[in-house]
Nucleic acid binder design. Structure first.
Length: 377
RNA sequence: GGGUAGGUGGUCGAGUGGUUAAUGGCACCAGACUGUAAAUCUGGCCGCGAGAGCGUACGAUGGUUCGAAUCCAUCCCUGCCCA
């Protein structure tokens, strides 16, 4: 094997749950896993500075997005700026998503063929074409430590036939991505397992991609609106199909319960926009469940968002004050809530890592669910 | 004192004889949000009722009319202009 940009080191397997405790080595430092990765689509985790992400959230790696940075400001510009790390002043690892999710969610603006995807810019209506080769060119310019191969994220529900066709095409695109990817010593290309909610397709997708011997693998196309039991079924089916000696990434997962389940299934990395999005919409994640702090019940609540949280927001501000900021449409409200929600999830994963080391993750899950207010599955 | 423009639901503001419990914005109340076209979107927002519906409402009072927030009279109040 050539000198790989990214490698995985397994430290411990939880005897109770089978969850993995590990380290991912990258050109911009190590990542302790399992981990939650904040999303910074447009080269910024909305409203957060890199210092806040490092010192307060304690984020080890963040995501950014091929589709959005290609359209604006343009990947060549980012390259000129010295790459994404330099451009946004983030010196820890970055992962860029390939735009496959945008291909899926902006579906009325695109046409998919074997060659690639023609789409219309949501910014100015201009026509563009993404092929696997083009996506690699962009991701190479951006320079993230981990880059995702170009895939199609199929919606839920979708027919067996279409899902099969799409999954096979995604596998063919992965081959082309691997061939087109230039900076293998600096950037690790991860493959994305698709196959919708059909076990045989998931299995086939995993097999096809594993043959490519990529440095890491992701599960895509779940957590797209399906019931939780469907999600869990696919998660627990697919994760064990993935190589044990490489990072396993579950894309787009986000809620505390899903993150814990992902760890138990043997997943190392998750990302989600949820904490920052619901922050902007006036909601906090807490150890006692979701708190819609914008609601009137908190108008005179002079306690922190979460009494167990160690974040800057919780150490300094009350629910009443944050509610006031949110109601008054003050930027600080968005920032304080974003910071808290992100810290809540990174802290949750810190705890998950400890519980794995202590072979106690299942007990922790039950405790967490009880306190959070989830009904145990 | 004279002239003039006005007084509409929490607020701003449409409506100028019937399809008006009354457009819209804001405020307010709640819900949603999972590889970010999201500081967004959806619903509610006079009272009672599960509902059909009933009751009350467009400054006040009195009228015209089958029917008035809309027309008439008087009164009250507000802005501006002139003395």
């Amino acid at each position: 094997m050539r000198n790989q940009a990214v490698t995985y080191e397994l430290l411990h397997v939880c005897k109770q749950s089978g969850a993995r405790r590990g380290v991912i080595h990258t050109p911009h430092g190590d990542i302790q896993t399992p981990i939650f990765m904040p999303v910074g689509t447009q080269a910024t985790v909305k409203s957060m500075t890199p210092e806040e992400l490092k010192n307060d959230v304690k984020a080890q790696i963040i995501l950014s997005n091929t589709y959005h940075l290609y359209l604006r400001p343009g990947h060549k510009l980012v390259e000129e700026a010295g790459g994404l790390h330099n451009f946004m002043r983030w010196d820890r690892p970055i992962l860029t998503d390939c735009g496959g999710f945008q291909v899926f969610s902006l579906s009325d603006l695109r046409t998919i063929t074997e060659e690639g995807v023609e789409f219309t810019s949501h910014l100015d209506g201009s026509k563009h074409f993404f092929s696997p080769e083009k996506v690699m060119e962009i991701e190479n310019s951006l320079g993230a430590d981990i880059i995702m191969s170009f895939d199609e994220c199929v919606k839920y529900p979708e027919t067996y036939e279409y899902t099969k066709q799409s999954m096979e095409r995604t596998a063919r695109w992965a081959i082309r991505c691997k061939e087109a990817h230039k900076n293998t010593d600096k950037q690790a290309l991860f493959g994305i397992i698709q196959g919708g909610f059909y076990e045989d397709l998931r299995k086939k997708s995993a097999e096809d991609l594993i043959k490519l011997d990529l440095p890491g693998y992701a599960i895509g196309g779940i957590s797209v609106g399906e019931p939780k039991e469907e999600f869990l079924k696919m998660l627990y089916y697919t994760a064990p199909l993935m190589p044990e000696n490489k990072p396993r990434y579950l894309m787009g997962v986000g809620t505390p319960d899903y993150l814990i389940e992902a760890a138990i299934a043997g997943i190392d990395m998750c990302d989600c926009v949820l904490p920052t999005r619901i922050a902007r919409n006036g909601t906090a994640l807490t150890s006692h469940g979701k708190v819609v702090v914008r609601n009137q019940t908190y108008a005179r609540d002079f306690t922190p968002l979460d009494d167990e949280c160690d974040c800057y927001t919780c150490k300094n501000y009350t629910r009443a004050y944050i509610r006031h900021l949110v109601k008054a449409n003050e930027i600080l409200g968005v920032r304080l809530l974003s910071l808290h929600n992100l810290r809540f999830l990174t802290k949750l994963m810190e705890r998950v890592r400890i519980e794995i080391e202590n072979d106690n993750l299942l007990n922790f899950r039950d405790e967490f669910y009880k306190k959070y207010g989830y009904i145990k599955e």
